[in-house]
Design a protein around this nucleic acid. Structure first.
Lengths: 89, 89
DNA sequence: CGGCATCCCAATCGATACTG
DNA sequence: CAGTATCGATTGGGATGCCG
């Protein structure tokens, strides 16, 4: 319960998870466009925290220019029902 | 969704709602004992915010010494299923 | 007993700039 | 394109003390 809040409780966490849920796989830049006016540093940071909590996964392609894709993990998908309840409330 | 988080997102909000759910009606001092090491000012503040969001109700008795009781509103009871999901997650 | 005001520190987040 | 470092502004909440 407190754990759950610690995972989704950040300023942008819900929005990030929500968009990942809708888009499936998404690149960093795309995500940033969906979330204005989030700051670059802030998005990176929140993504990193979500990774550490194991709710999103990160896939990096070593091309130039860089390409990084994010998606939800299985663990995160179980959160979706909580989001639904929140929406209804 | 963001609204829900804004209501329950405080440092102690979940704990307060949780205890109110278990105890039903509870006095300020009792609640404080259940929540150490919360600061006096902090508890007052969080309770006030919860009131403003309409999830708890406050009943004051004009006795000496003062007596104030808190309880959940109907609105708050609908949150309980969300808490359950969070617990399972 | 419970609420409110004041002061203050720590965590959080944004703006900006540099890196590969 | 994406990540990291630095700095500054904002904010949440803790300590303390006064009030009815």
């Amino acid at each position: 319960m407190y754990y759950t809040l610690s995972v989704i409780g950040g300023r942008w966490k819900l929005a990030i998870l929500f968009h990942l849920g809708r888009e499936g796989v998404i690149r960093y830049g795309q995500l940033k466009k969906l979330l204005p006016p989030i700051a670059h540093r802030t998005l990176s940071q929140q993504l990193k925290e979500l990774q550490l909590h194991g709710v999103i996964s990160r896939k990096q392609y070593n091309e130039m220019p860089t390409k990084v894709e994010y998606s939800l993990t299985k663990k995160a998908e179980k959160l979706l029902s909580i989001f639904n309840l929140m929406n209804q409330w």
